[in-house]
Design a protein around this nucleic acid. Structure first.
Lengths: 251, 251
DNA sequence: GTCAGTTCTTGATGCAGATCAACGTTCACT
DNA sequence: AGTGAACGTTGATCTGCATCAAGAACTGAC
């Protein structure tokens, strides 16, 4: 095996990238992908706790996670933070900053990660001449907006166990699409960050992991998660388990 | 006063529209606005409880609220719903549907409303030849994404009174930008819908209105709201009032 | 290795807000 | 103007989860 990596393969990689259909180039013709590759910058890898950008930084590029995990969060008035999301390979970061050319949130690296940098000005120019790229970008932004509804439902209507089950199910599904195991993975975020994201106290998250394990739904060892009963997990996530009389606020 | 309205002014109105700078044409040159106007359809007014579209309907157009209020919501498994937002004049609906050409949520009219319909295919074509329109659309989508963070913070970290105060403050601000009073307005949604949106029970919303009134922050009469102390309302919304030791989940 | 600082777990307690219940008010319809 | 249904308010009670507390397990620096 040749472990030497040519400069070329580092610089221009979309066409070989394992993310392929998950990423921005999806739906572009090979020549268009090449044009896109020309504007992409690949930087040195980022390490745990590095910041990709911070709230209020001026915006010039979008980033696609290539490997690793990146957390986005919003600093709060009281010094705390609100975790907005955990971004896996193929997911795009920085879309919120297009509006006024300033990042509205901060992005922090959870585990050694690599990102592709897409200078937005150039991306726009390219989208101007490649209709399918423009379309792809609209879809991408739209997807982000559509996802929001699920999160609002999670925070507004679900109880603690439904939230954590939803979280695990979502991770599982996303890992699977990336070619990793859907039932055996490592969490790159702390319990605290999970709780923060889900609107729960750390203690609650911890207790739920214990409970899920007792119930045989998962096996948990520190950050290592094995899903033993995915159907049940999905059921819990949907709240379709247990007695559910709920018809509240059906308006 | 001439109360006859010409067909022309109904069909083509962006340039005269009071929304002007709030709406999509913002930042476009007058000739570009004209091109945009050509693709806009203006339909007959919609009445309370009409649906503009329903979840899963196939997507062909975006809509801009011209007058009135429109609620978007997500049907839930259990028959209930999750209110996603209340849309005032100038706000765009349907952005979530671009991704797979199917609406992911439903849109229901809360009070007699008029909307401008923007056939998305034509809009994309136009954006392809008007760079500033493409840019404007990216910004629009981005704005929607940036807003999400605030809502997650609201649902994940704020208590009931902070939520309701935030809600009123947001409405106030949005009315003001539209040239209405920031301190005296009517709610077009029910208490139930407010509670649903904010992740609270109706009873809690009702009690809070009463409490805010007792504290002299607002005057409430049914759906009529007067903000008596905006500073205080803002302070409550931010949670910067009362004893706040909170440093929880600061991660 | 050891030590300090996180992070995680588990138990005990308290409270904000949900839920239940009952009544008042408004609205839509005829 | 009257009637039923929807909506809103208020009070009493209950409970899920936050909070407090303390110890255990892990992590990284030296």
């Amino acid at each position: 095996m040749n472990r030497v990596i040519s400069i070329e393969s580092i610089k221009v990689a979309c066409k070989n990238c394992s993310l392929g259909s998950l990423c921005l180039p999806m739906g572009l013709t090979p020549p268009d992908v090449e044009k896109l590759e020309k504007i992409i910058k690949r930087n040195r890898p980022l390490h745990r706790n590095d910041h990709l950008f911070r709230e209020n930084d001026s915006f010039s590029s979008l980033f696609v996670v290539k490997t690793g995990t990146i957390k986005t969060y919003l600093p709060r008035e009281d010094g705390g933070e609100q975790v907005l999301g955990f971004h896996l390979p193929g997911e795009i970061i920085g879309l919120d900053a297009i509006q006024d050319e300033r990042h509205t949130c901060s992005a922090k690296v959870l585990e050694t990660s690599a990102v592709c940098e897409l200078p937005f000005g150039q991306l726009e120019e390219l989208a101007q001449v490649i209709p399918s790229l423009q379309h792809q970008m609209f879809k991408l932004l739209s997807k982000e907006i559509a996802e929001e509804g699920k999160m609002l439902t999670l925070l507004g209507k679900k109880n603690a166990e439904e939230r954590l089950a939803s979280f695990l199910a979502s991770l599982s599904c996303r890992f699977k699409r990336r070619g990793f195991s859907a039932t055996d993975f490592y969490l790159s975020m702390s319990r605290n960050e999970i709780g923060n994201y889900l609107g729960l106290a750390v203690e609650t998250v911890s207790r739920l992991f214990t409970r899920f394990q007792e119930e045989g739904v998962v096996r948990v060892d520190r950050k290592h998660i094995e899903l033993l009963d995915q159907d049940r997990l999905e059921a819990v996530a949907k709240g379709s388990l247990c007695a559910r009389t709920s018809e509240s606020n059906s308006a």
